[in-house]
Simulated scan of single mutants.
Amino acid sequence: MIVGGIAALVFVLSSLILPKTLAVLASMASTLYVTGAFHEDGWSDMVDGFGGGWDKPQILTIMKDSRIGSFGAVALVILLLAKFCALLEIDLLLIPVTLIAGHAFSRLCAVSLLRTLEYVRDEGKSKPLATGIGRGELAFAALTALLPLLLLPFQQAIIGVVFAVLATLWLARMFKRRIGGYTGDCLGATQQLSEVAFYCGLLCRFS
């Protein structure tokens, strides 16, 4: 919620003097700066590993490499472009709360893997979380993630949640099948893809 709030604030202030396109870009840049592109790095590493690795040891080795490969570079560009384009299509007045809701709910999606999958490295950025997450902690995470959704139109919020959950389930299934669990990069990748999926879901119209 804090990261999303920063993005929303930057967007609101930027939109006072800049076109919508540049205000959206400024809000995205602010989250990259605040988080150190932590989750985006996880996304590119995950795509590199799963795209270039044939078995579990190879996938984990590639993901651990600090260099970015062609799979990761292309995937990162597409992800950021998709996020930018999706936010541009959202109503101007809804963008601030959309950013808060998207950042909060996508992190719940990532946190859910701590409860459902096992950590597969002996060391790494997520090692302190390797024992999983308790029910109370998960409930608190869910509460903080679901509250911002109440500020969005009901039908749009539901579809956005469904899209984000489907993206999370797809990734979780792939992580389980290919490496037997998750790594820190998998968590970052889940946050990023579910965030974009959430924004895309908000834009869907069924008649």
Rank of each mutant, 00 (worst) to 15 (best):
P96A: 10
T35C: 05
D65I: 03
T190D: 01
L9D: 02
G102C: 08
P19T: 14
D45N: 07
V74I: 15
A29T: 07
G136K: 14
K64W: 00
Y33S: 08
L93N: 07
F38W: 11
L187K: 09
G188H: 06
C85H: 10
F84V: 02
R135K: 12
P153G: 15
R173N: 01
E118S: 12
V97W: 13
L94E: 08
A142M: 13
D55G: 04
D45M: 03
L152W: 08
L9Q: 09
T116L: 05
I95Q: 02
R177W: 03
I159G: 09
A130I: 01
A26W: 01
I59W: 02
L138E: 01
R178H: 05
I62V: 08
S70I: 15
S70R: 14
G42A: 03
I62Y: 05
L187E: 05
L171Q: 15
L152K: 11
R115D: 00
L99I: 10
L13E: 08
V161P: 00
A37S: 05
G134T: 15
G4D: 06
F163K: 13
L79Q: 08
S30C: 05
L13S: 07
L92S: 08
L13M: 10
V162Q: 09
E195Y: 11
Y33W: 12
G53K: 02
A75D: 01
A37C: 03
H39S: 03
C85Q: 14
D55R: 14
A141L: 10
A110I: 01
T61D: 11
T168E: 01
D55E: 11
K64E: 00
P96F: 12
D41I: 09
R121E: 02
A167C: 08
E118W: 03
A86M: 07
L60Q: 02
Q192F: 07
I59C: 03
S66P: 01
W170Q: 06
A157R: 13
V111P: 00
G51I: 09
R178N: 03
M174D: 02
A37V: 03
T21P: 00
D41L: 09
W170R: 15
T190M: 06
F163T: 10
V24L: 04
M28Q: 07
A82E: 03
S15N: 13
R177D: 00
E89P: 00
L166T: 12
V120F: 04
K83V: 03
S30E: 04
